[in-house]
Nucleic acid binder design. Structure first.
Lengths: 248, 248
DNA sequence: CTGTACTCTTGATCTGGGTCAAAGTTTCAA
DNA sequence: TTGAAACTTTGACCCAGATCAAGAGTACAG
């Protein structure tokens, strides 16, 4: 049921309600006991919708393994991905009863959930949870605003490079990093999902990936397996000053 | 020094550190006393930069009157506005020492500030401040994500309509609303600032505003004075489902 | 295997919005 | 009152990325 990755996280802090790795140091044992009572796991298959925008949302939780996306859709079908949920990311909004975006599993997904009202009750009693949640939300806000620059002002090629560098950095713990500093990972998104994230069409995404490949910025094996020979070069293509700091 | 508008807010809760109107009901008198000691006002003129991205930020605060923008800039000068600060909005990030964006006053601006470390100390002692700040940050996150849809997927005309409807709604308390339901307000942004917000050029902004005017969606008196005869029509142009909910 | 349904790539063409240029408005200092 | 600077509008032209179209892998159910 739980895969290798989720177990790795579990060793550090299986029960911490929010961002397992980062907060466990502050958890106290009586909190953990109370959380144990309201905790449960949910599994979703790739492509399954975790929750629809506007639906009643009676839980909060965090991703244990797999990847999910937050998307917004206009009536005519135009969609924009507004967030990417990787393992340890928190989902849900204490204090609001309905979901603001569609949450869709893009790979098989395991989530650690807590029923909402008990969680909110706990939050009221233990201030550090609200403080930790505030820090995380501020991080997400920074990431969202960083992404606004990508969406509003970058070219297609820069957008692709930005996305690749985010995935490379966010996924750093899973990635292979060879002796030469080469970074290797599998793209967790289809071309269409990348297009929805970047505000492009899937054809443009495909073309730009081909172009980056031709220019030696990335190497591709199959459709998904990416190696980045020189991260500096990629960041340069992304137009980021310094190291970018996306999804800090 | 303080104008009519700021006094209006003051009547409700002059000293509440965050979003004056919304939080004052929860303030307790001893908190207010302690806040009084660390509170001070700062004035900025239109065009002045409140703080530069990367600079040390030793205060937090909220806008009392006037309008400021949060912007990000690439080395080559491309800029993207990532947020609009209207009266009662909170600025600053507890727990981080340097600013992540440029904050620029677009009109004359009065801010109510608090030195950072005393404020953080207070936050630690009074949990409801962290909780309130969390709610506000989640609101901002929703707004940022809503804006990502605008930036990534909307046409120039839809972008302009979206911006106008946001300003109309956000500014509702200052706006004139005539007997016929007509909405009247002054644009607080130049064409260039609008372009930076929308990921467009100022020429395109100008053209689309002219087009909306020609089509009777808006009326213009001079460059800044806007009247919206039919809000439903404007929202329709913005492509928003229902009432949009931007900057909820 | 083999067919069917995806996902991805590549080509040809079109167009919304960018770029460049010029002139009209405001604003405000002198 | 006048002149200069800043903001805005409008026109002409162009190009990055969208759209339309056709194949080429790939995955997997039967």
């Amino acid at each position: 049921m739980l895969n290798e990755r989720s177990l790795t996280i579990s060793q550090e802090c299986a029960d911490c309600p929010i961002r397992h790795r980062a907060v466990c140091a502050r958890c106290e044992s009586d909190e953990l006991e109370r959380l144990e009572e309201i905790k449960y796991y949910r599994k979703f298959e790739a492509g399954q919708t975790v929750i629809w925008s506007g639906d009643r949302m009676d839980f909060v939780g965090s991703v244990v393994s797999g990847i999910a996306t937050l998307t917004q859709t206009m009536e005519d079908g135009r969609t924009q991905m507004v967030g990417l949920l990787l393992p340890s990311d928190f989902v849900g909004r204490p204090g609001r009863t309905s979901a603001a975006y569609d949450v869709v599993a893009t790979t098989d997904l395991v989530m650690c959930c807590f029923r909402k009202s008990p969680f909110e009750e706990m939050m009221r009693q233990t201030p550090h949870i609200a403080q930790r949640l505030l820090e995380m939300t501020l991080d997400e806000l920074d990431a969202a605003r960083e992404w606004m620059l990508v969406l509003g002002r970058k070219t297609a090629r820069e957008k692709i490079a930005s996305l690749l560098s985010i995935i490379a950095r966010r996924d750093a713990s899973i990635n292979m990093r060879t002796a030469t500093g080469t970074l290797v990972f599998d793209l967790p998104l289809t071309r269409e999902a990348m297009a929805d994230y970047l505000g492009l069409t899937l054809e443009t995404v495909s073309r730009q990936i081909s172009a980056l490949k031709k220019d030696g910025v990335i190497e591709l094996e199959g459709k998904r397996h990416v190696t980045i020979p020189d991260m500096t070069r990629l960041l340069d293509e992304a137009g980021d000053d310094s190291d970018g700091g996306l999804f800090a």
